[in-house]
Amino acid sequence: MSSVDSVAVPSRGAALPPRRVGAKWLIGFILPLGLALAWETAVALKWADGRLLPTPSRVIGTLVGLARTGELTAHVLATLQRVALGFGFGVTAGTVLGAVSGYWTLARRLIDPMLQALRNIPSIAWVPMFILWFGIFETSKVILIAVGVFFPIYLSLSGAILGVDRKLVEVGRIFRFSHREMITRILLPATLPAYVISLRSGLGLGWMFVVAAEFMGAEEGLGFLLVDGQQTGRPAVILASITAFAVLGKITDWLLASVSARFLTWQDSFKAAE
């Protein structure tokens, strides 16, 4: 009925109609909430046994209990700190080396083959060495996370720089751009979309690796909570920890995405037309 409405292109400056923006966003909740509700009902009606897969209400109850004692906050903070540090180091190293190897051919020939070979080692395989070298405390954990974060960022940044449209670089040459101007005015903005995506996938890997790192033996952290739940045979605790991971991962990714979206309004993607 409103097809004419949706085809009309809003003129620049005219505000998009605010209607249903919230509704669009809420659609994402339908599936997880529906599944949770279905499981809750199934267990309540005794169709299923909730022992191995506890109901959402029990998981939430466990989370609330952990929050009351202050345990949850301590675990969350410990894990957040590890992810933040590992992500920070991984991003820094990936950005520097990715930029250098993308821009400077000699450096690429020097460092890229080695990094490509190292990339194929499952990062978990480093765990024993990291423990030997850096001890079993924070350093080895942070480094493991940093290694996981490093590769997607290094790979996509160097690839994105190599892939910058020669045609745009030529425009810079015609206007006699210096190296610095070429980087700040063309290479940086041109690679930004790919870089943002790599930051997001790097962050995702950071969350994956923090679990592996905390399996290595930690006294607190969500990964510790998970192992503790396993060893004491409490599936609700395991699920509480998994839920916390999901929520934190989603929130941090959303933060990263919304901060970067401000710099990418120029993109001519099919989403921009939404």
Binding site: L168, V171, F175, R176, P189, D268
Partner: peptide
């Protein structure tokens, strides 16, 4: 021997920077 300010060039495609 290199691009000069007195010489302007228009390419086959507009080659505008999409972020500007």
């Amino acid at each position: 021997r290199a691009p000069r300010p007195e010489i302007g060039l228009v390419f086959q495609e507009p080659r505008l920077m999409p972020w500007l």
